[in-house]
Design a protein around this nucleic acid. Structure first.
Lengths: 77, 77
DNA sequence: ATATATTTATCGAAAAACAATAAGAAATTC
DNA sequence: GAATTTCTTATTGTTTTTCGATAAATATAT
């Protein structure tokens, strides 16, 4: 059960690089990377807003609730 | 330009009260109220996850990016 | 290989969640 | 319409986490 940040998908759709996105939303590339790779534990609405603005999308395009990552055992055991 | 928390809509759909939701996701009613009434400036993924779990919904059902509240002038001016 | 882009890591500072609590306001019930 | 429950607002303090700044490591082209 987790929240995933699907920034990579939206970036691919918009053909925008991490560096450019970081610059346009006004955070450092280092911090954007943390967000993009699911290392963040929270997000400020100001940041989410900037992302939605620049990527022209909705929070639902960036955030996903995944109830479960099925375990190996369920496939093989 | 803002992020809105549409918790009230989802709560209405699920017929759940603020008190019960607070208890089930494990935060105080006071803090849930802040979230529900758009007074929060950020959200932890752990909280968003609990909300999505209990309400059986996606982040996109709870969070909305609104580009603009049209100003009076644009209607009358 | 060289240059560029991204990721990871560390440090410090500022912001904000959240608990606990109390008090006020608003619904609801009787 | 009074009592009761529920919700909201406010305050204080603690803890968590973002985020900037920076540097180093890694990956990705060219």
């Amino acid at each position: 059960m987790e929240i995933l940040v699907n920034l990579d998908v939206m970036m691919a759709k918009r053909k925008i690089s991490a560096g450019e996105l970081a610059e346009r939303i006004g955070i450092t590339p280092a911090n954007l990377s943390i967000l993009k790779n699911n290392k963040a534990k929270a997000i400020r609405f100001s940041t989410l807003m900037a992302l939605c603005d620049v990527l022209a999308c909705q929070p639902g395009d960036l955030l996903e609730f995944r109830a479960d990552t099925p375990k190996e055992e369920e496939y093989h055991g």
